[in-house]
Design a protein around this nucleic acid. Structure first.
Length: 275
DNA sequence: CACAGCTCCTGGCAGC
DNA sequence: TGCTGCCAGGAGCTGT
């Protein structure tokens, strides 16, 4: 499931392979991936357009074909694959739903669970405007973060709320909470200034390391050249139920928080504030 | 305002 | 071997 680090790697891959190139052909194999407009309009607006920029906002990919923006949310299993020419395996793949032919490359959108959505819009404000702080931006200060935490909500669902902080998903929230030594069900407004600072640092550190490691490949994630991430080897708690905590060797447990599978070390992350 | 539950979707897996 | 049925989960939605 692509979160901020995986989307960041994909955005870099798209920039490297496609920037400055014109779209020569659009083929839609499963129109359900298009949020808007319909396939006909999508095709006619995109054909002949040049890719001027590729940006990331939270987990969203924003491709500028001025005056249009192609926005993509990969959700669970969405992938972009870039090849220098049509690829036989991808052509035969029933999970490929869209193909964009650029001048010197072919871009495939592949999505096993079909949760991902693409849209072509003139105005980004209603899309990016609903998203919260970028956790790796200068605006994401401990003070700003503290302001977001000043409410009576469980920590983990709050950190997953894209309207507050944009880009965190299940994996990196569990990892950040472990690093900070905080239980996912602690109430956000019960954190001390020290705990807020610790969590702030942990969120940034986890995301930066994951980007440096090329993202986390547990099952589906692949980069634009089909490369796997390496951060799964560095995970402390996510997907490690029953295995020893890297810090204290206590077995990691898996619980349910806000309807989501949640991994933690019961010794390092006590439900009541430490000391 | 907080949050539980439902929806979308399919591959992978447990159980028989 | 092959079937059934359950599970994972991001985000948007409704209901409590």
């Amino acid at each position: 499931m692509p979160e901020l680090p995986e989307v960041e790697r994909i955005v870099r891959g798209l920039r490297q392979s496609l920037l400055g190139q014109r779209v020569e052909r659009v083929s839609i194999r499963w129109p359900g991936i298009l949020a808007s407009p319909d396939g006909e309009a999508f095709t006619s607006l995109l054909c002949g357009a040049t890719l001027h920029a590729v940006e990331r906002r939270g987990k969203m990919i924003l491709m500028s074909f001025s005056p249009w923006w192609l926005t993509i949310h990969l959700r669970m299993t969405g992938q972009f694959q870039v090849r220098p020419a049509p690829d036989a395996a991808l052509e035969a793949d029933k999970h490929v739903h869209l193909r964009l032919d650029f001048e010197r490359a072919v871009l495939y959108y592949r999505d096993v669970r079909k949760f991902g959505r693409l849209a072509l819009v003139a105005d980004l404000s209603h899309i990016a405007g609903g998203l919260g702080l970028e956790p790796l931006s200068a605006e994401f200060t401990p003070q700003a973060f503290g302001g977001l935490l000043a409410r009576r909500r469980q920590l983990k669902p709050l950190l997953l709320d894209q309207r507050l902080i944009a880009g965190l998903g299940n994996i990196y929230v569990d990892e950040a909470l472990w690093r900070a030594g905080l239980h996912p069900q602690r109430l956000a407004n019960s954190l001390s200034p020290e705990e807020i600072a610790r969590l702030h640092g942990a969120v940034q550190q986890v995301l930066r390391e994951a980007i440096d490691h090329g993202g986390t490949t547990l099952r589906d994630y692949r980069g634009t050249q089909d490369e796997r991430g390496r951060h799964q080897e560095a995970l402390a708690v996510y997907g490690r139920a029953g295995q020893p905590c890297p810090r204290c060797s206590t077995p990691i447990v898996r619980i349910r928080v806000g309807g989501r599978g949640t991994h933690l070390c019961p010794a390092c992350q006590p439900i009541s504030p430490a000391q």
